[in-house]
């Protein structure tokens, strides 16, 4: 019962957060000085045409009235019509979402892999130069944000050793059989290694740029937790029973050290998703972030609103899942 109440309370907080985001973004972009409508019309348009178009997009009403109309539509799944593309915002946004999701999940996987390997290697080789080197690399990776790592990767693997693609999502001249926008997932399911290779060659650098700072955070925290766990009695016991160091770290220490890292990964994943906005721009990757920047530059109000709300929904959902997972995984919280 108490658990149920906690979950309901958490859901209510999330709803308040999303409503807050909606209000703020709506008010902020209504202050835009440029008039998006006058940019849509040919130079010869009369004032009457402009007024009719403004009325069509509802821009002639007061801001609270506009908000209520828009929010009512959103609750029914209608996010309005994009001013530049003349398509429903929801279609545009959902069309781009898979690209961003694939990139974010690939980046998360890389971060967990790199951070995990760094932490385990550092723990296995404690007190050696390798551990010191890993610590220095971690510090560097943490000090510099994804945008700069992206630029460094563009230089290294796009220009000096041109082995990967530095722009786009897929080579357009290839035969593309996709029926969904989950290109990577679909290529894997269709057993098309050529397409998987081409997609990964486009995705690997942006994914790495997003992954490096997160990998550093994971590596640092996991290593710290491992270090604390390694001094516990049951680990010493396993050692005296004659188990080797690898077994002790992987089988005894790791399962107990991993929970704080998992919590952190969830929270940091939202930062990674936020980072896709500029990383997609940098690598001309056709995802949500790139669409968002175009929408801002073109003053496409309905589209901007839709994208920001979608990002906020994703962030809130990730945080919610992490919180609930923590409750589920931690018996002390479950009964507390």
């Amino acid at each position: 019962m108490r658990l149920l109440r906690a979950i309901l309370l958490r859901l209510a907080t999330s709803a308040v957060t999303l409503a807050g985001v909606a209000v703020i973004v709506f008010v902020v972009i209504r202050v835009v000085p440029g008039d998006p409508v006058s940019m849509m019309l040919p130079p010869g348009a009369t004032d009457d045409d402009i007024a009719r178009l403004r009325a069509f997009y509802g821009l002639d009403r007061s801001i609270p009235a506009q908000f209520l109309i828009w929010a009512g539509g959103v609750l029914q799944g209608d996010f309005g019509t994009s001013i530049t593309n003349r398509q429903p915002v929801l279609d545009l946004v959902l069309g781009r979402l898979p690209a961003t999701l694939e990139l974010s999940v690939l980046a998360l996987g890389l971060a967990v892999l790199m951070g995990g390997v760094a932490a385990l290697t550092g723990t296995r080789l404690r007190g050696t130069r390798t551990e010191a080197a890993i610590d220095v690399a971690n510090g560097m990776a943490l000090s510099v944000p994804d945008f700069l790592w992206g630029l460094v990767l563009v230089l290294l693997f796009g220009v000096i050793f041109p082995v990967f693609n530095i722009s786009g999502r897929v080579t357009p001249s290839l035969d593309l059989p996709f029926t969904t926008n989950f290109y990577l997932l679909e290529s894997i399911l269709r057993l098309r290694p050529d397409l998987v290779a081409d997609l990964l060659s486009h995705m690997i650098l942006p994914a790495l740029a997003l992954a490096i700072p997160l990998a550093a955070i994971i590596g640092q925290l996991l290593k710290q937790s491992l270090k604390e766990t390694m001094h516990l009695d049951y680990v010493t016991l396993a050692r005296t029973r004659g188990y080797g160091e690898n077994h002790v770290i992987l089988r005894e220490a790791l399962p107990n050290a991993i929970l704080p890292t998992l919590t952190l990964v969830g929270v940091q994943f939202t930062f990674l998703i936020g980072g896709t906005v500029i990383i997609e721009r940098l690598f001309s990757y056709e995802g949500l972030g790139n669409l968002a920047i175009d929408a801002v530059i073109n003053r496409d109000l309905p589209l901007i609103q839709g994208i920001v709300i979608l990002f906020a929904v994703i962030f809130t959902a990730v945080n919610l899942i992490v919180d609930l997972a923590c409750v589920a995984l931690n018996p002390r919280l479950r009964h507390g």
Binding site: T17, L18, G20, V21, I24, V25, T270, I273, G274, G275, V277, I278, G289, A292, I293, V296, I307, V308, F311, A312, F315, T316
Partner: peptide, 8 residues
């Protein structure tokens, strides 16, 4: 915290 900071 629910806003994507770069986009914002």
């Amino acid at each position: 915290m629910a806003f994507p900071p770069v986009l914002f």
